[in-house]
């Protein structure tokens, strides 16, 4: 009887997943494959609908990999990501250490968390243009502020310098994301067994020791998660660099995403080259998420097995109860 019940309900697993599978196949899977195919063709120009495979299949990929702007974009993406991530993770770890300190309770934690996370939910497009306005020259809020504090004595034209433009984009990213990272890390600390901390307290470890020897090692998986999702997010960086300085000055804030957009949807509409660049990005992202996947997978598989066992037990119990009732 049990056998029969399992068989008859299993089909609902397929039926209920069907909408997801169909929509995913049409709107995600097919476009990815199609993008891959376009990468091997001569597809370009607005409104073109016909295309042919190239005689040298990898020509677009070779062109893109040798393209100065694409290399520059990869380099920029890496520089901007590093400039944003290192301070971001350090600041988030520091705040996490403070907010979860068992000895010194910080008051107003909730209030600070709300404010620190706030920039993350505001439209990135608006933030990019807001910062463009804030840094304007010769009169702009940032220039006024710095002059009032006597840090500079004449206005600085921030946006003509490559280094400054990159630094500002990195700062915006930092400013938008450290609150998020801090929230993830503090919730990770909440998940650590409090008994470990109690034991450490009895042993007389200092707050700093506790952080380095207990908190940090226990956050390893979460830190890796933050690192990899941030790397992927960094590769996708579009809104801020696109609207802040349109990738400029002199391509200094051109990221891979902005590069793909510019290739495909402006100028000579080089869909094939943009598609090749997309596929290169896809490979990089696949490697990153492969690592993340490998690390996270074990856990969820154990969970499934546990849950299956529990469900089985539960069914047996219910069956027994039913039989007893009859």
């Amino acid at each position: 009887m049990k056998q029969k019940r399992n068989v008859s309900y299993a089909k609902y697993g397929y039926i209920f997943s069907l909408p997801f599978i169909i929509v995913f196949a049409i709107f995600s899977l097919y476009p990815i494959i199609y993008t891959g195919v376009i990468g091997f063709t001569d597809y370009k120009g607005l409104g073109t609908t016909t295309w042919h495979f190239l005689d040298e299949p990898f020509k677009n990929f070779v062109t893109i990999l040798n393209n100065g702007s694409f290399r520059q974009a990869l380099k920029n993406t890496f520089i901007i990501w590093t400039l944003n991530f290192i301070p971001q993770i350090l600041m988030a770890l520091l705040l996490t250490a403070w907010f979860t300190s068992r000895r010194n309770k910080v008051r107003g934690k909730g209030f600070f968390k709300v404010l620190f996370y706030m920039p993350n939910i505001i439209t990135a497009a608006s933030i990019a243009i807001l910062f463009y306005a804030l840094f304007s020259y010769p009169v702009g809020p940032v220039n006024s502020l710095l002059m009032q504090f006597g840090i500079i004595d004449k206005p600085v034209y921030f946006l003509v310098s490559k280094a400054n433009a990159r630094a500002i984009v990195a700062f915006i990213q930092f400013w938008m994301w450290y609150g998020y990272t801090m929230l993830i890390l503090t919730s990770g600390v909440m998940g650590i067994n409090p008994e470990i901390y109690e034991a450490a307290e009895i042993d007389g470890t200092s707050g700093i020791q506790t952080f380095f020897y207990i908190t940090l090692p226990n956050l390893k998986t979460i830190l890796l998660y933050v690192l990899i999702t941030s790397m992927i997010g960094g590769l996708n960086m579009f809104d801020i660099p696109k609207l802040f300085m349109q990738g400029g000055p002199d391509n200094s804030t051109l990221t891979t995403s902005v590069f793909i957009y510019n290739q495909a949807f402006s100028g000579s509409y080089l869909y094939n080259r943009a598609a090749a660049a997309s596929m290169i990005m896809f490979v990089i992202i696949a490697i990153f998420s492969g690592i993340l996947f490998y690390v996270m997978r074990d856990k969820s598989e154990i969970e499934i097995k546990k849950e299956a066992k529990r469900a089985k037990k539960e069914r047996m119990r219910l069956l027994e109860e039913q039989e007893a009732a009859q």
Partner: peptide
């Protein structure tokens, strides 16, 4: 409890990180 449940979940985990930028041209 269906046969492809676990592969399907693995698939969902695998595609979670794919951004729009990758498939935008297609």
């Amino acid at each position: 409890n269906w046969k492809l449940r676990s592969p399907f979940f693995t698939f969902i985990l695998a595609v979670m990180m794919i951004p729009a930028q990758v498939s935008v041209i297609g």
